[in-house]
Write a protein that binds this DNA or RNA. Sequence first.
DNA 1: TTGTAAGCGTTATCAG
DNA 2: CTGATAACGCTTACAA
Lengths: 325, 325
Amino acid sequence: MKPKLDDVAKLANVSKTTVSRVLNKRGYLSQETIDKVYDAMEKLNYQPNTVARQLYNKKTQIIGLIFPTVTNPFFGELVEELEKKLYLQGYKVIIGNSMNDPEKETNYLNQLLSNQVDGLIVGTHNRNIQQYKNDNLPIVAIDQIMNEDIPIIESDNYLGGQIATQRLIDKGARKIIHIAGPDYLNTPAQRRRNAYEDTMEKYNLEPICYTVDFNIPYKDKIQIFNRMFEEQPDIEAIFSSNDLDAAIIMKLAKNFNKKIPEDILLIGYDGTQLMRTIFPELTTIIQPINQISSKAIEVLNDRLESKETLKEYILPVTLWEGSTS
Amino acid sequence: MKPKLDDVAKLANVSKTTVSRVLNKRGYLSQETIDKVYDAMEKLNYQPNTVARQLYNKKTQIIGLIFPTVTNPFFGELVEELEKKLYLQGYKVIIGNSMNDPEKETNYLNQLLSNQVDGLIVGTHNRNIQQYKNDNLPIVAIDQIMNEDIPIIESDNYLGGQIATQRLIDKGARKIIHIAGPDYLNTPAQRRRNAYEDTMEKYNLEPICYTVDFNIPYKDKIQIFNRMFEEQPDIEAIFSSNDLDAAIIMKLAKNFNKKIPEDILLIGYDGTQLMRTIFPELTTIIQPINQISSKAIEVLNDRLESKETLKEYILPVTLWEGSTS
DNA sequence: TTGTAAGCGTTATCAG
DNA sequence: CTGATAACGCTTACAA
């Protein structure tokens, strides 16, 4: 059995209160008592029970992070940044990889909000969060519309989509295909697609979208892209809303005897550290993961202190000029 | 204020006990009571307080995962698998990215073991865990020696190193360089290096190792590899203990006018889904992430039930035959 | 400077 | 079938 406060108290011949005071360095205590208590704690190898403290304080010092999958470098790096920064503020993180499974996500949401976490940062792409309406919950969303009361942190998706499309057009491409996330998801990321469509229209070009759920198995993606190459033999450029897909497309292009950038221009999206390091040649739009995570935490802190927040925070994107377009 | 059991009880005109029974579907209850209670819960939008339950049950249903960084695809995929499988068993996960910072790691270890988690799966590379000796703690380690009492789950690092080195030799390379993790870390992964050295010796070849801490910034790695290319102009093959480093090396080789595999043979290590998808040409040793995670959880469960476990579990590796060697 | 006792929100025992 | 009550381990008024 693990020793508890009372065991320490008995061994040190003091009351629980005193031990608690020593533990939390509160109030006046004689040095003698302090020493006695520390001695006892050491002898018993005492560790305070976090859960009991959480119950009393009504705070867990835990933040829940719900994201589709930490396996995608964008989310991996984002989650890592969030963890790092929250750690410095004394928080731990519970992570839920929802895999865009609505049931799993709802489950996490419900359970974590049962006093298990102090706040939530959510980046999944599902809806059904009606139940939390009006509740002024300590939640912020990243790139995701949950409901009107939950602030959204995002990078400038429209501008990103515009920069990407414009670049391909400027480089002479006319038949430009866009790989997008599923359009039933009304996320801010869809603005990349809107920007693509608007820009194409502006030049009287026909927008062509292929839709890929970004966390289906790789082999399914490969199938879709292979079909795309078959259906679009005269394709001149591709704007992928995701670097991973762009990288896969680069590999597949070879099989169709298409060279990048000679035959097909390519631009991706996200621009993670990882991709910039192992695929520096891939031109892409960089999302400011560092700023996104900082802002998300800042806004969450505001919410926790019941301060007013904006509904939406838009952070700047930048272009990574590789050689694929 | 969030409603509590008592509020529900009052509204439904029953006792706390009854509400608790309804909540946990225990004991005999009249349908009428059940309905009344559910009604009240709904009206108040009641959510049971997880922390209070944790205190009573002395279980949190949380497992702590401590790994260097979720940003490395190997750990990312491992953590994801662990989370997925633990979720199905009713566990949540707290994640600590130690970044090989001993202080942060110790901190996590101490705090999480303060009744905050039911068990721990640890994959970090630091020592200093003396304090936990003899304690029969519910911990398992992945690829990491913590102390004699903590079981280790690992893939067959020696065999992996052997297969890799042998392959390079079979393909005709003689001057073969190995990129290894820092050797002050006495981890099972060092057996890859041992295997490399043994195999080289067997063929009377001189082993040459470059040491790279795997979570230093990318630009520092690039510096080290550039130096390597300068110092070793007649290099014929490289065995990297990490696919990311292998990928970086592939990019850098171009700058030195070295073609892979024509001029330099290359083999990596880890073989994550991600790398096999976006770098299928990279020959590598696949660690069985799925099996590792399953075994880790299985052994942790045994520990939680105070069953005897082995000290070490070694899982098989396989070769991914790309075109880089 | 230290101790007593109440309370944080649950669950389970035991009695009715 | 239902209800008091103690307990989980800690913190803090309030007293001494």
